[in-house]
Design a protein around this nucleic acid. Structure first.
Length: 386
DNA sequence: TCTGGGGTCCTAGGACCC
DNA sequence: TCTGGGGTCCTAGGACCC
C-alpha cells in the first residue's frame, strides 16, 4: 500500500508559510500571487501560483509578463531555493517519524510505502488524514495525498483532489474515476504525445485504455506501451526506483545578455565547469562523458558530448574538453544560455585514477582539492556566524 | 507568448567488431 | 571485395517529469 504525497503549489505555499511565521498579515495563498523568476535576469517564468492566480488562467511555466497581463494586480515574489530545501527536508523528516520506506520523487513529492504500518494503523485512509493534518499543523502548508496499492495510481490520485485532500484510487476504481479524464492528465503523456494521440481520436484516458496496445506501441514507440499500461492502471516496471546515485550532474545558466564573443562564452563555461566538477567530487564520482549545450536567441539548442578514455573529476581537464566541444559546437549565433553536464559516472573507488595520470593532472587534482576545502571552510565560517 | 533549471529515458544513425 | 547480419558503443536530438 502506498501514499503519494504532493505539496500544493509547493514554492508558493512554502513562501506563504514563511511569511506568516515572520509576522506578515496577508497569506499569499489567499490572493492572486505567483513565485516567479527575475525578469531582469531573463528567468521570468512562473514557478508556482496561488489558486486565486490560477483562476485568471495563469499557468506554471508561462512568462511572468504574460501572467501580469492576465492579472494586473498579481503579487509576484522571487524564488528562494534555500527556503524550499529547508521546507522540503522538514516535511520528509516528519514522514520519517512513521517509516523509513520513503522514495523521494522531487523536492515536493514522495511515495511512502506503508506496508510496515498495518499493525499500528490498520485504517490507511485515517493514517493519510493524520499525516496530512500533522503537516498542516506543524509546518503550515497543505498537501494532497493519494492512496493506492500501486505507485502510479497513488500518484494519479493525489492529483485528482487539491488542495488539502486525501484521494483513494484502486484498480477497481479506474474505470469510474480515471477513464473519463482527458488524455493529458495521464502521467507521462505530455504535449507531443497527447497531440499525436488526439490526432487518432484518443482524447481520454479511457480511449487509450481500450485501444490495442500493439497498435499504440507501433504508433508511439516505447512511450506508447508505457502509457497504455498506465491508462489500464498497471506499471510494466516500478514507477520510480530508489537510486543511490545520480546518473548525471549538470548546471546551466541563462545569460543576462545574449553573447556572441567566444571568450565571454568560455568564462561562463569555466564557471559552470567549476560548479559541476565540485558537485561531482563531493559525490566521490568520476565522469566519463562531458557535454556542452547552448541555446541561441531563437531558442534552438545544440549539444556536443565526448567520452573520455580516462574518467575524470578534475576541473581543468573537464574545461579543456568543454572548450573543444564548444568550438566544434558553436555556430557563431547569439547565445542565450549555456549548460554543462557530466554523465556516465563511476565511483572513485572503482577506478585507479592515478594509473594514467600525468604530473600536470596530479597537480591539478591537488588544486581542486584545496579549492574544495577552502569553499567548505567558507561555508562553515558563514554558518557559524549565522 | 518572448519563454528556468535539474534531471531521466528513448531513438536513430554511424562506427566498429566478429 | 562489389558482401550479410548481429552486437555494442557512441552521439545528437527530443520527449517527459518536477
Amino acid at each position: 500500500m502506498y501514499f503519494h504525497i504532493d505539496v500544493n503549489s509547493a514554492f508558493l505555499s512554502w513562501e506563504a508559510a514563511e511569511r506568516l511565521r515572520n509576522g506578515e498579515q496577508v497569506d499569499l495563498r489567499d490572493i492572486p500571487s505567483i513565485v516567479g523568476g527575475s525578469i531582469e535576469k531573463r528567468r521570468g517564468v512562473v514557478l508556482a501560483k496561488s489558486i486565486p492566480a490560477k483562476a485568471y488562467g495563469i499557468k506554471t511555466g508561462e512568462p511572468v509578463v504574460d501572467a501580469v497581463r492576465k492579472c494586473p494586480n498579481l503579487k509576484v515574489v522571487p524564488s528562494n531555493f534555500d527556503l524550499y530545501m529547508k521546507s522540503s527536508r522538514a516535511m520528509f523528516d516528519l514522514f520519517r517519524k512513521y517509516t523509513n520506506r520513503i522514495t523521494i520523487y522531487s523536492i515536493d513529492e514522495c511515495f511512502i510505502d506503508i506496508r510496515d504500518l498495518d499493525y499500528l494503523y490498520p485504517d490507511h485512509v485515517a493514517l493519510a488524514y493524520e499525516i496530512k493534518e500533522e503537516i498542516k499543523k506543524q509546518l503550515g502548508f497543505t498537501v494532497s495525498v493519494g492512496v493506492s496499492d500501486q505507485m502510479l495510481l497513488a500518484k494519479m490520485a493525489s492529483d485528482m483532489k487539491k488542495p488539502d485532500a486525501v484521494t483513494v484510487l484502486y484498480q477497481s476504481d479506474i474505470e469510474d474515476k480515471m477513464w473519463g479524464l482527458p488524455i493529458e492528465d495521464l502521467f507521462m503523456v505530455g504535449r507531443q504525445t497527447s497531440k499525436r494521440l488526439r490526432k487518432i481520436g484518443i482524447a481520454t484516458i479511457g480511449d487509450l485504455a481500450r485501444a490495442k496496445p500493439d497498435f499504440i506501441e507501433n504508433y508511439l514507440g516505447a512511450i506508447g506501451k508505457t502509457a497504455w499500461y498506465y491508462a489500464n492502471g498497471q506499471e510494466e516496471k516500478p514507477l520510480v526506483e530508489k537510486r543511490e546515485r545520480s546518473k548525471s550532474i549538470g548546471n546551466s545558466n541563462t545569460l543576462i545578455h545574449d553573447v556572441n564573443i567566444r571568450s565571454e562564452a568560455l568564462i561562463e563555461i569555466l564557471s559552470l565547469t567549476e560548479k559541476v566538477m565540485a558537485r561531482l567530487r563531493k559525490e566521490k564520482m568520476l565522469a566519463k562523458t562531458i557535454a556542452v549545450e547552448y541555446k541561441n536567441s531563437d531558442f534552438e539548442t545544440f549539444a556536443h558530448q565526448v567520452s573520455l578514455s580516462n574518467p575524470t573529476d578534475a576541473t581543468m581537464k573537464a574545461f579543456e574538453e568543454a572548450e573543444k566541444l564548444f568550438d566544434e559546437l558553436w555556430r557563431g549565433d547569439a547565445i542565450r544560455a549555456i549548460g554543462l553536464r557530466v554523465s556516465n559516472l563511476i565511483s572513485v573507488q572503482n577506478e585507479q585514477v592515478t594509473l594514467f595520470e600525468s604530473e600536470l593532472e596530479r597537480k591539478q587534482r591537488k588544486v581542486d582539492f584545496v579549492v574544495d576545502e577552502i569553499k567548505k571552510d567558507v561555508r562553515i565560517t558563514r554558518s557559524v556566524l549565522l
